[in-house]
Write a protein that binds this DNA or RNA. Structure first.
Lengths: 207, 207
DNA sequence: AAAATAATCAAATCATGATTTAATTATACC
DNA sequence: GGTATAATTAAATCATGATTTGATTATTTT
């Protein structure tokens, strides 16, 4: 019969967080199991009690947790039908960036370590599917706005990747206690992208 | 007395390019010296003839070469005084993105492997200085445009990082033979950022 | 064609770090 | 209190991969 886990012992989530921190500092390959273990006052071997499948499994779960979390938050905004596309996009950007700045370790893992997980064929497929869904949240809003005539005609996939690239990068350079808060950064960036979608005439390139 | 290097033997640049390719596929830590060597038909040991300081030195040179190259190209545009700030920014974005799409391996290294080099105290300082200079090229143009009144007031550092984040990300997702050419992507993205800088009124956020 | 140096290789080293194993200790359940 | 299971550890394994070493082969220079 199942029994309740001990109260004071480390749990999986603690370890995932610890791992994300170490990954951020040293990268996945540079992170020793003993580094992760030390972060939660364990020895390397003990980690295998919680994650029998070892190091890679830990990374996979860090990324899945992180992506699911941010997806859920963004999804909630998307589902709010009281918002117009422009308000929705602003709020989504805001939510996404705050999510990143509030958990920079996981954010960095999502940027830097995704490639590692992709080398694992099983994990790869599932992960890419998740990531596509996330990207879809953005493309939908943008397309909606274009269809409604409140955004100018842009190439939706490229515009989406432009936003996401800018976001991802925030997770890399943002430091707590810097010149601007996460909120201010989110404001500034949502202004930028909404201005970029403003349906006024844009002088065309001639090269 | 110095003698000319043998004609047919591999040279340092070949190796750097090969290394960048392997780094792109497997990441720095995942790349074996033997992988890099195989790419140029050598054995692992032979690489030490060309790079006595070993693997990390190879990475450092890949990044330095890559950054210097792209910096030089962008600098050339910045130095062209016949261009107005908006034209200049458009051209800089264009140049930068084409640089990335034309050498995706190095581009990916610049995004993913910079962290590795930063752990090396000596390389760190020099590299950060270079990277700052590069960023300055963008901030200067943007500030110029604002001062000239043809760009709206944005937070220049954030806007710069927004552009650079979007650019970096191109190096990650771009694939030769995809739906759009590098030129089309560059066009689309420069339209985006110029629109974002257009000095029309932007509806303010209220949260 | 010698002599000198460059380029390369195959086979050691050497270090590191993930994972396994065999206990040991702690906690929950009855 | 006693037993089953969870949590943890210390000490092996085991594998991998960077680097070194001591030849061997190529190329250049004179």
């Amino acid at each position: 019969m199942a029994r309740k886990p001990a109260e004071q012992s480390v749990n999986r989530l603690d370890i995932l967080l610890a791992a994300a921190n170490v990954f951020r500092r040293k990268g996945y390959h540079g992170a020793k199991m003993s580094d992760i273990a030390a972060e939660v006052d364990l020895t390397a071997g003990s980690l295998y009690h919680h994650f029998p499948d070892g190091k890679q499994q830990i990374l996979i779960e860090v990324l899945n947790e992180g992506l699911d979390q941010i997806t859920a938050e963004v999804q909630a905004v998307v589902d709010d039908n009281t918002l117009m596309p422009d308000e929705k996009l602003r709020k989504v950007i805001y939510t996404n960036i705050l999510g990143l700045t509030h958990n920079t370790s996981v954010a960095a893992a999502l940027v830097f370590e995704t490639r590692t997980i992709l080398e694992n064929p099983e994990a790869r497929k599932a992960y890419l599917k998740r990531r596509d869904s996330f990207e879809q949240l953005y493309t939908h809003i943008i397309q909606e706005g274009i269809d409604a005539g409140i955004f100018r005609q842009v190439d939706v996939p490229i515009f989406t990747k432009t936003i996401l690239g800018a976001h991802n990068w925030v997770g890399v350079w943002y430091r707590e206690g810097g010149r601007l808060t996460g909120e201010q950064i989110a404001d500034e960036m949502s202004n930028t992208f909404l201005a970029a979608l403003s349906p006024v005439q844009v002088p065309e390139a001639k090269h």
